[in-house]
Amino acid sequence: MAKFRVVHYINQFFAQVGGEEKADHRPESREGFVGPGMAFNAAFGDKAEIVGTVICGDSYFNENLETATKEVLGLISSFKPDLVIAGPAFNAGRYGMACGTVAAAVERELDIPAITGMYKENPGVDSFKKDIYIIETKNSAAGMRDAVKVMAPFALKLAAGEEIGASVEEGYIPNGIRVNFFEEKRGSERAVDMLLAKLAGKPFTTEFPMPDFDRVEPKPAIVDISKATIALVTSGGIVPKGNPDRIESSSASKYGKYDIEGVFDLTESTYETAHGGYDPVYANLDADRVLPVDILREYEKDGKIGKLHRYFYSTTGNGTAVASAKAYAAAIGKELVADGVDAVILTST
């Protein structure tokens, strides 16, 4: 197999052009490897080769972000690489931003795999960890050898299109994508280890950092409910009997929209639940228990509400990813607003 063609992006300092006084160095390219590229090239063995190095001063890059990115990309693509490595930048902030920008642009615009390496507190991490793989390094260039040991094989894996494992296996900074893998110890033993560390005040790493929650502020109350159009939306999986849209019993990939014009009561023979996460017996006997059409029809008749919206929307909340639920809610919300619905009764289970 032919060797992968690799282009290496580094700053003026690692290219030995100069220090801070040369930070305005404009983009240039050189054949083969320069500076730390030697270590990468050696680590690649016969699998890949650094065919060119692109160098840019950190100040020039960050102060002329758009043009510098364009110039650097042009120089990179002229080498026709299969893979691009930027840095590693360790804890150098402007270098980190440059490496992140270059690697992300290479993936986005040239469609070539690209990685970089940074210390976890480098500001480039937060800006780019979701766009590209950033291998975690030490905070100074003294960590170059260790960085190369992780970055080089990982880059080869990426270039070869192999499956990428979990962050903890591969050494990249967690990017928000959860990846399954087999640990060495079973979960209960890891829990005991973690508890003993926590009790002893020793460092430990949680396997799942708590997410930031998206809290939704409720709207102010409806002033005159007797004039309001009310819609029913449920994550309780109520569907017409037979589940015509085949909404999944768990991890729903869709929601359904159902016409209830002229429906005054949901009965055992007409509606059921598709939801697999709760005892379905009572919902199947009388789906009004989850989606209260019967009561709202009474209220409609008595003038307690304006009217019940003609359609209800339903999905199963069971095991459904928050991102999916959010997307369904946005789509449903848009239609409800367009249809002039004033309020929604959202029922869960």
Binding site: R178, M194, E207, F208, V322
Partner: peptide
Amino acid sequence: EYAGRDGASQSLADADISANAVVT
């Protein structure tokens, strides 16, 4: 976790800062 088929979604339906030691 129920992080979606692509692993990109929020994994739990509830969270709190005190839950700082999690095995998954």
